[in-house]
């Protein structure tokens, strides 16, 4: 088991594995959000949001309904573009880049409602996830070039390791839509990891899971972080968010109202007010 995990760590670990990153200065953020504004029609969804996600941590993003969490999430993932402000990923500006280019840079995501490729088997889903990390083209595929065959084999090996990592190795050849919901979520995470991301964005991963599954998910998230993948998690389930997050950002009505460690957040006045509905 340990050996397996080590293998995984080789396959999903991003290139620069400097465990001892500096805490201050430019290098301390993998994602930097600078003065982001976004509105839909007349609705101001996000107003002047700035914060940093530190590398190799789990960054929680919480807030009441309609706070703008999902909007912010989608801005980082590339589903929307911000009206104003900048998003840096690894010192590169990404706010104008399209989704697939961001994946190439190392941003992977999951969906709130789980979006698997339902007509495909479990392992094929993970193989599609490796799309940006493989490069066989049209002609080399048609002529079955040796390197294409080798790449395909390598991809399958790695897909199996990833399935092992999330515990779905027995179901590799099952149609993904036949999996129970909780496992579909795990498969989606495996698919996201297949693109060897530096940061993994999880959109309410506990939605629809029972207590046991949520707990296992928490373990898995920490395990992924320990492999050196930064995680940004939008979560409704407060206990999960508090449990897994190293730092938490709290949004309310499109504004960032607090940022800090879970303990700081729990005792933060504005947060209490936002959640319990207390006015100022």
């Amino acid at each position: 088991m340990n050996v397996l995990i080590k293998n995984i760590s080789n396959s999903i670990q991003p290139e620069n594995d400097s465990e001892s990153h500096s805490v201050a200065g430019e290098n301390s953020s993998i994602v930097r959000i600078e003065a982001i504004c976004k509105s839909f029609g007349g609705l101001q969804a996000l107003w002047n949001i700035s914060f940093d996600v530190r590398p190799y941590t789990v960054q929680g993003l919480i807030g009441p309904n309609g706070a703008g969490k999902t909007t912010l999430f989608n801005l980082i993932a590339g589903a929307y573009y911000p009206d104003k402000g900048r998003i840096f990923f690894d010192q590169i500006q990404v706010q104008g880049k399209r989704v697939h280019d961001r994946v190439k840079l190392g941003i992977a995501r999951t969906f709130q409602n789980v979006e698997l490729f339902e007509s495909m088997t479990v392992i094929e889903n993970v193989l599609v996830g490796q799309y940006v990390r493989t490069r066989s083209g049209f002609w080399s595929t048609i002529f079955r070039m040796p390197w294409t065959i080798k790449e395909e084999q390598g991809a399958r090996e790695e897909a199996k390791k990833l399935l092992n990592f999330v515990g779905l190795e027995q179901y590799a050849e099952v149609r993904s839509s036949d999996l129970p919901f909780g496992w579909q979520r795990l498969l989606e995470i495996a698919r996201a990891l297949a693109s060897k991301p530096k940061i993994l964005l999880l959109d309410e991963p506990a939605a629809g899971l029972n207590a046991v599954e949520t707990k296992q998910l928490g373990e898995l998230i920490k395990k992924i972080r320990d492999q050196g993948v930064t995680i940004l998690i939008v979560e409704h389930d407060m206990s999960l968010a508090m449990d897994v997050s190293d730092r938490i950002a709290v949004l309310n009505q499109g504004r960032l109202i607090a940022e800090g460690t879970p303990r700081e957040i729990q005792s933060h006045d504005a947060v209490m007010a936002a959640y319990l509905g207390g006015g100022k």
Binding site: H100, K104, E115, V128, Q130, V132, T141
Partner: peptide
């Protein structure tokens, strides 16, 4: 191949297909 799987992924969910980098 890799290309065929990516094609089928567009069929199943174009949304998710983009999200894995296609």
């Amino acid at each position: 191949s890799r290309i065929g799987r990516a094609l089928r992924s567009i069929h199943d969910s174009e949304h998710a297909s983009k999200a894995v980098g296609v």
